[in-house]
């Protein structure tokens, strides 16, 4: 028997007291420890002092503004950050993701979804050993050999397709913005050439996805997320 893992420590920065109370209820019943901060400044302070395992950050805060808090936080911490935002605030979301947020949730959200996202963030935050083989559906990706097979047969992916797939798999379960994908795969000078991304992504999907179960989920206007049961 291994000793029970220590309860992960979470910091919620939100100015709405009801949201904080609800989050506390949801998260504590799921086995997390929860700290609260009402303003951005208090939140930054709390993050520095308590060193939480993950931060849930509302983008519309009365004092600093969520984006500002995130920038300060990222100056000295790589703690996973989950953004809460409202519908229609795509621009803010993208800015936050590009500024280093790890994922986002649009209000109103369900408790189940929140917990699922948190699980992904925390898993990623754990120093996982270098995975060399990833499987999803009937596809197997071997990062050391740089090969992709489907039902055992070799799949030929172009260099860009492979790079895209690799990037999405590395951030499995998390959203990767268009800009991040373009910068990583094509270089910073192509950050605006979304049509590259669309064309190659479409080709990649044709190769790795069965017709009815998409693994690569489109986050309209924001980016892509690799999702699968595992």
């Amino acid at each position: 028997m291994t000793a029970p893992a220590p309860k992960p420590d979470l910091l919620v920065i939100d100015d709405e007291v009801q949201i904080r109370r609800l989050l506390r209820l949801t998260l504590e019943s799921a086995g997390y420890r929860v700290r609260e901060a009402e303003t951005g400044a208090l939140g930054l302070n709390e993050a520095a002092v308590a060193r939480p395992d993950a931060v849930i950050l509302d983008l519309s805060l009365p004092d600093l503004g969520g984006l500002e808090v995130l920038r300060h936080l990222r100056e000295w911490s790589q703690v996973p950050v989950l953004i809460l935002s409202v519908r229609g605030g795509e621009t803010d979301k993208i800015a936050a993701l590009d500024a280093g947020a790890d994922d986002y949730l649009t209000k109103p959200f369900g408790g189940g979804e929140l917990l699922a996202r948190l699980r992904v963030l925390l898993r990623r935050a754990q120093p996982a050993g270098e995975v060399s083989i990833v499987r999803f559906g009937d596809v197997e990706v071997d990062f050391t050999k740089r090969t992709v097979t489907r039902e055992g047969a070799d799949l030929h992916l172009t260099v860009k397709e492979y790079a895209l797939l690799r990037l999405l798999l590395q951030h499995r379960g998390k959203v990767v913005t268009h800009r991040q994908l373009l910068r990583e795969v094509w270089g910073p000078q192509h950050e605006a050439d979304t049509h590259y991304l669309r064309v190659h992504m479409a080709n990649l999907r044709k190769k790795i996805e069965p017709a009815d179960t998409p693994f690569i989920k489109t986050e309209s206007g924001i980016g892509y997320r690799f999702t699968d049961a595992g």
Partner: peptide, 19 residues
């Protein structure tokens, strides 16, 4: 309303909308 026009893939859009 500020639109951000960008290249879109109809398949992507429809899949996301259906979701």
């Amino acid at each position: 309303l500020r639109t951000r026009l960008d290249w879109c893939d109809a398949h992507d859009l429809i899949a996301a909308a259906l979701d």
